[in-house]
Simulated assay, not measured.
Amino acid sequence: MPRRTPSAPDPEPAAPPAEQVPYGSELYWRVRRDVMDGRFPPGSPLLETALSSDYGVSRTPMREALGLLEHDGLLERAPRGFRVRSGTAEDVVEIYEARIALESEAAASAALRATELDLARLRHQHEVILAAGDEGSAARTASFRFHELLWQAAHNATITDLLVKLTARLRIYDSGPPSPFGGVDPLQEEHQLILGALHDHAPDRARDAARAHLRRSLEQRINTLVGDDDGPPP
C-alpha cells in the first residue's frame, strides 16, 4: 500500500445553484466533493453503472462527470472504468514542488497585477487567520483561503487552474484525520511578508517570500512522511 501523509483539509468551492448550471455540471461537483471527502479511498474502482444507480442518474451524465474528474487528475482509467488516483510519498513531494514553482510565480505576478480589491481581500483574510489563532481546523481553512486569494490576485487563469488541480490531488493522496497545526506564528509572519511585497509592488520579494513559506510547508510534509507528528500547514 502506498503511504499517504495526513494533511489539512482544503475547503471546497461551493457548487453553483442547480438552476444556473447544466445537470452534468451539478453531478460533477457532487462526485468531486465525494472523492475529495474520502468517500472513495485512493485506488477505489468507480464503475459507471454502479455510480449511476447510487446517484440516481443515467450513465451518460455520469460518464461525462467521471471524464472531467479524470481530466482534473483525481481519477485514472482502470480495466473496468475508473479508479481514484493513488500515489507514493514521492508523488506527494513532487506535486508539492510543482505547487511551489507555480505559486511563487503567482505571487510575483500578483505584486504587479493585484487590484486594490485583491489587496483588501488578502488583508481581510490575514485578519481572519489572526483571529483564528491556534484553532487548527479554522486556521487551516482560513490559511488555504489566503492562498486561493493570492492565486486570484495574480490574474493568470492558467496558473490558477493548475494550482487548483495540484492541491486537489494532494488532498486525495492524504488520509486520516488532520494532524496538529504546525504553528500559527510562523505562518502569520510569512503571510505578512508576502502581503508587504504585494503592497510594495515588489515581484522578486513576493516570489521569494512565497517560495520560503511553501518550502517550510514542504519540509513539514516530509517530516510527516518520515514519522514526525507535526502536520503541514496549508
Rank of each mutant, 00 (worst) to 15 (best):
P42W: 04
T88E: 12
V93G: 12
A65K: 09
H124Y: 12
Y55T: 02
G73Y: 05
L66R: 08
A50P: 14
E105I: 01
S44P: 07
G136S: 13
H71I: 00
V92Y: 08
E76D: 02
S44K: 04
E103G: 03
A106F: 08
P45F: 00
A142F: 03
A110Y: 12
G56T: 01
H126Y: 11
E48N: 12
I95S: 11
T115G: 15
L102S: 08
D37M: 07
M62N: 12
L112A: 12
M62R: 10
L119C: 07
V128A: 07
S104R: 15
V84G: 10
G43V: 02
Y55R: 05
R85I: 06
G43D: 09
S137W: 06
G136E: 14
D72N: 09
V93W: 14
A114K: 07
F146Y: 10
E70W: 00
E127T: 05
R59W: 02
F144H: 14
S86D: 15
E90I: 01
P42S: 03
E135P: 11
L69D: 04
L68G: 09
A65Y: 08
L122I: 11
S104H: 09
F82P: 10
R85H: 07
V128P: 15
L47V: 15
E97S: 07
S53Q: 13
D134F: 03
G73P: 14
T60F: 05
E103I: 00
A111D: 11
P42E: 03
L74A: 05
A89L: 13
E90M: 04
R85C: 08
A89P: 15
S58M: 04
P41A: 00
E97Y: 02
R121W: 05
F144T: 03
G38V: 01
R80T: 08
S53W: 04
A114Y: 04
E64P: 01
E103Q: 13
P42L: 02
T141Y: 00
E48I: 05
R83S: 06
S109D: 14
Y96N: 06
A114R: 07
R77E: 04
D54I: 01
E105D: 12
S52V: 01
E97A: 03
T49H: 14
E116Q: 11
H147P: 05
S104K: 14
D134E: 14
V84H: 11
H124D: 15
V92P: 10
I100E: 10
T49N: 13
F40M: 04
D37C: 05
L51I: 02
A108P: 15
R59F: 00
R123A: 03
L68S: 11
A132V: 02
S53P: 09
A110E: 12
L74Y: 09
D72R: 10
R59H: 06
A78H: 06
F144Y: 12
A139M: 10
T88M: 03
H124K: 13
S143V: 01
D118C: 04
R39E: 09
D118S: 06
R59P: 12
A120L: 12
S44V: 00
E103D: 09
A78G: 03
R39V: 05
G133E: 13
Y96K: 08
E148V: 02
Y96V: 01
L112P: 14
T115P: 15
L149S: 07
M62F: 06
